[in-house]
Amino acid sequence: MDTTAHARGPLVYRQTLMTRITHWVWAVSLFFLLLTGLQIFNAHPALYWGQESGFEYNNALLAISSREGEEGLEGVTYLLGWEFETTGLLGASGGRAHGFPGWATIPSHHDLGTGRVIHFFFAWVLVGTLALWLMASLLNAHWRELLPTPSDLRALPGDVLNHARLRLHRTRTYNVVQKLTYAGVLFVLLPLMILTGLGMSPSFNAAAPWLLDLFGGRQSARTVHFAVMLLLVLFFLVHILMILLAGPLNELRSIVTGWYRIDPEGDAHDR
């Protein structure tokens, strides 16, 4: 990759103030939501589908537990009928039984009450920030920048191939892979996480009982909520990897100041 040519590229104003503010609020909110969510999950580290969880029978899709082994406490994880030993990470570590280890939860010790308070606080911060971003995007038409055009979709195979080969172009607008990814997060994953979270709230159930029916029951909503969390973690890891490959200082400047340095021929890649 020609870094010298990249250095000669012009600076363009790519990220608006609202985009930058909401980006960082989402980052902080999702960090606390993840770690407090794992604290809440540890109260019953299993996932089911439908209306109920089994007690006298096992209908778990995922279950994290522990058992006594020859060398002490062992962690074991069950996934779709398959059994995996996960000692040291899931089920048991340091001689203690748990779902996720303390370093992955907030608080780090077992405290369901505090975890729920922090979780609900940042959940409403996320809801408010997303609503604010949606309103601002409607006013400044930023949402259109995230929706791929027919020409974008025709260019999708080539753009996927460029990403696979790590040929990353720095352009004035988002490429089609970025558009599809960001649109999926903002218009699908985040709303789905919010709706499943509301569906598990007893007070919201009283006002809108149809929401749980939409997801097929409380246990299904909890499972979808957990699956969306995993997808958001995957998005974060890929997002960070792309930032490192594309030039972390340039990407950081863009999301802090709004100014982004594009390739000299960046305008030719705009679609």
Rank of each mutant, 00 (worst) to 15 (best):
A7T: 15
F215M: 13
L126T: 00
E70T: 15
S203E: 13
L132E: 07
G81C: 11
V238R: 06
H109D: 11
I21V: 14
G69C: 06
T86S: 12
E85L: 12
N42D: 12
F204V: 11
T16E: 06
G102E: 13
H44C: 07
V188G: 08
L189I: 02
M1F: 06
G217H: 10
R172G: 07
L147E: 00
F122P: 02
T16G: 12
W133T: 12
L146C: 00
A141R: 15
V188I: 13
I21N: 08
V176W: 09
V125T: 09
L161Y: 07
H23Q: 07
A207V: 15
G54R: 06
Y182G: 03
Q51K: 11
A183D: 09
V76L: 08
P191M: 00
R253T: 15
F32D: 03
T36N: 04
E251R: 04
T196Q: 10
G81I: 15
L244C: 08
H225V: 01
T19E: 13
A27W: 07
P191G: 02
V76Q: 09
L190H: 03
V28M: 04
L186M: 08
V224N: 00
V28Q: 02
D2C: 06
A183Y: 09
G81N: 11
M200Y: 05
H142E: 15
L252Q: 02
F122M: 03
H142C: 07
R96E: 13
N59I: 15
D267C: 00
D2K: 11
A46L: 03
Q15S: 09
G94M: 06
G88P: 14
A92Q: 10
F100Y: 13
L153E: 07
F84C: 04
R271I: 15
M200L: 15
E251S: 07
M242L: 15
G197E: 12
A183R: 03
P10G: 10
M200W: 06
L230K: 01
N250G: 01
W133L: 14
W103Q: 08
P107H: 02
G158H: 05
G217T: 09
